[in-house]
């Protein structure tokens, strides 16, 4: 194993033999008493994308400011010769401008045949007793197995990055069968959190509530890569309001009333640009201009017009992960909505 100043992985910290990781981490903390090692979780970030390791190390630098963790970064490159390299470092920031608070990071690059080796490498470097959050970037590969899923407390994926979301969720279902403790979180679902909060908030208004029974049309606009988010929010509306999907964007309310949903994709749209529910005379709308940091929440019913701003959902995956980490929960609402979403795909 060699480390040279020109090593492309130099920013991952000190390269160490895998067998010496714990020893080297201890030495790292002994160097400076003024630093506090904080950790609330094990956060594994897995990628099969070339260069993902370096990018994820930068992401952890930001993420760890609000989510103290032991970060374990993994990059897999099957096409290269078999090898295993490891680096350790710490991401530190000043807390309240006083204390230097640090999260430790172990980065692994596994090449060649990885199955089995990968799992054991991760398992042996977890901080005991702390939950394991596993952020899987990209498509689920054969590395994702029932054995691996069995040690996770939370699995974060982004179905927007999958070519076949149905197959992806089927794979998760297969690997997690009977594992009710695992919480699965889809960043495509996280992307519409503020929209859902906004819509729910608008329907607290008596005028919007009065119009709910008469909703006849739904319009949702999204950017091309965020169709899953659009379908998930449509599925959420339908499940919560008790509308049945009759196919081809048509829903039926409990009293047989028809609702037509239109989903529009536009490159000029924000990830989710608009969710609008209309009944005769009343429109409830949450919208976002591309690039805006805010959502505009509106109700229009005759002369009655109210509006307010609320924060928009972040766009970057790491910011969405940060949101998920700070929120926690069992994600039961997503599981409730998932079957309808899969039906709409």
């Amino acid at each position: 194993m060699t480390t040279t100043p020109t090593d492309e992985y130099a920013e991952l910290g000190k390269e160490v033999p895998v067998s010496q990781i714990d020893h080297e981490l201890r030495a790292l903390w002994e160097q400076d008493d003024a630093r506090t090692n904080a950790s609330l979780m094990n956060l594994v970030v897995y990628t099969e994308r070339r260069g993902g390791l370096l990018e994820n190390s930068r992401i952890i630098g930001d993420l760890a400011r609000e989510n103290a963790c032991r970060a374990i970064l993994v990059e897999i490159a099957r096409e290269e010769e078999t090898s295993l390299r490891a680096w350790i470092t710490a991401h530190c920031h000043l807390s309240d401008g006083r204390k230097s608070v640090c999260s430790e990071q172990i980065a692994f690059r596994l090449t060649g045949r990885v199955t089995g080796r990968f799992r054991n490498t991760v398992f042996s470097h977890l901080n005991s007793d702390l939950p394991l959050i596993f952020w899987w970037q990209g498509k689920l590969s054969e590395v994702f197995t029932e054995r691996l899923a069995s040690v996770m407390d939370r699995l974060i994926v982004d179905s927007s990055s999958w070519a076949d979301a149905k197959a992806g969720f089927a794979r998760i279902a297969e690997a997690t069968e009977g594992n009710t403790a695992l919480v699965v979180q889809d960043l495509a679902w996280t992307r519409c959190w503020q929209y859902r909060v906004g819509i729910a908030g608008l329907f607290d208004d008596t005028v919007a509530q009065a119009a709910l029974g008469g909703i006849a049309g739904i319009r949702i606009c999204h950017s091309p890569q965020n169709r899953n988010t659009a379908l998930q929010i449509l599925a959420w509306l339908a499940v919560q309001a008790g509308w049945k999907h009759k196919g081809a964007g048509v829903f039926e309310t409990r009293d047989g009333h028809r609702i037509t949903a239109v989903i529009e994709s536009s490159p000029d749209s924000a990830p989710l640009g608009l969710v609008e529910l209309s009944s005769p005379g009343t429109t409830v709308r949450v919208s976002r201009e591309k690039g805006s940091a805010h959502l505009l929440r509106e109700i229009e019913s005759g002369d009655y017009k109210v509006s307010s701003l609320s924060p928009a959902d972040p766009e970057a995956a790491e910011s969405l992960v940060a949101q998920q980490l700070s929120r926690g929960g069992k994600n039961s609402l997503f599981l409730k909505v998932l079957p309808t979403f899969l039906e709409l795909l």
Binding site: W236, Q240, L333
Partner: peptide, 8 residues
Amino acid sequence: SNPFREDL
């Protein structure tokens, strides 16, 4: 009631 509030 507001069904969209449920579980949120």
